[in-house]
Simulated scan of single mutants.
Amino acid sequence: MDNKQVSIIAVIALAFLAGLYLLTPETRNIAVSIRYQDPVYETRTIAVSVPYQEAVYGTFYYGKLEDTGLTTYTWTIDRATDYSKEYTGKDFWGSPEYTFKVCWGSQCTNYPQINTWSISPKTEITGYETKYKTEYQKETYLARYETKYRTEYKDITKTKLEWIFS
């Protein structure tokens, strides 16, 4: 074999070894930027209608009609709510019923006049009424997403040839 042939074989062997080296995998720890969506929460104030029970008050008049001009019985006023309405009363024995008008003056024709000292007013709860009030509450909700980036370190494997050209 002459020197020329030896040189060619040596170049081929060297190229083969260089190719093997360049195609061998190599793992490196590389910093990688990772994109992610970050949720953004906001707090807002909202109005809420809240039901509640409110007492309803009325003024009632209690007392007795002693001199009606119609009878010698005593008639009882029980829970009369107004000066000008008609109410029904009962005698001492519980009957018969008698219709009277709660009023203070001479306009009470055909009804016995009730003097101010003969009855007394009293305010009581007559019932409950459902009402609504507005309350303000804070509520947290997802408003939007924001794109952010973070750096992570990953083991990446490439051939040495890829590492050279990447």
Rank of each mutant, 00 (worst) to 15 (best):
V11E: 14
I12K: 05
I12G: 00
L14I: 13
A15V: 00
A15D: 08
F16S: 12
F16I: 12
F16T: 08
L17Y: 08
A18I: 12
L23R: 10
P25A: 02
E26G: 01
E26R: 02
E26H: 04
T27I: 02
R28H: 04
R28T: 07
I30T: 05
A31L: 06
A31E: 10
A31M: 01
A31T: 02
V32T: 08
V32F: 07
R35F: 03
R35Y: 01
Y36D: 06
Y36I: 02
Q37H: 03
D38F: 02
D38N: 10
P39R: 03
P39C: 03
V40G: 01
V40I: 13
V40L: 12
Y41V: 00
R44Q: 13
R44D: 10
T45V: 07
I46Q: 12
A47C: 03
A47T: 12
V48A: 06
V48P: 13
V50T: 15
P51H: 08
P51M: 14
P51L: 15
Y52I: 14
Y52E: 13
Q53E: 14
E54R: 00
E54A: 10
E54K: 12
A55M: 04
V56D: 06
V56R: 00
V56E: 05
Y57R: 06
Y57P: 04
T59A: 08
F60L: 03
F60D: 04
Y61V: 06
Y61G: 04
K64M: 10
K64Y: 04
L65M: 07
L65A: 09
L65T: 07
E66V: 09
E66D: 13
D67L: 14
D67W: 14
T68K: 11
T68C: 05
T68V: 11
G69W: 11
G69S: 10
G69M: 10
L70D: 09
L70N: 07
L70V: 08
T71M: 09
T71A: 11
T72F: 08
T72E: 14
T72R: 11
T74C: 13
W75S: 12
T76R: 04
I77S: 03
I77G: 09
D78S: 12
A80H: 01
A80C: 01
T81E: 02
T81D: 05
D82L: 04
D82V: 03
Y83M: 12
S84Y: 02
K85S: 15
K85W: 12
K85L: 15
E86S: 13
Y87W: 03
Y87T: 01
T88N: 01
T88M: 05
T88H: 06
T88I: 09
G89C: 09
K90E: 09
D91A: 15
D91V: 11
F92H: 09
W93I: 11
G94S: 03
G94N: 03
G94A: 03
G94D: 08
S95I: 13
S95D: 10
P96N: 07
E97M: 10
E97G: 14
Y98A: 00
T99K: 12
T99E: 07
T99L: 13
F100D: 00
F100K: 05
F100N: 08
F100M: 05
K101L: 13
C103R: 01
W104P: 15
G105Q: 06
G105L: 03
G105N: 15
S106T: 14
S106P: 11
S106A: 06
S106N: 11
Q107M: 15
C108T: 02
T109W: 15
N110M: 02
Y111T: 06
P112G: 10
Q113M: 05
Q113L: 00
Q113W: 08
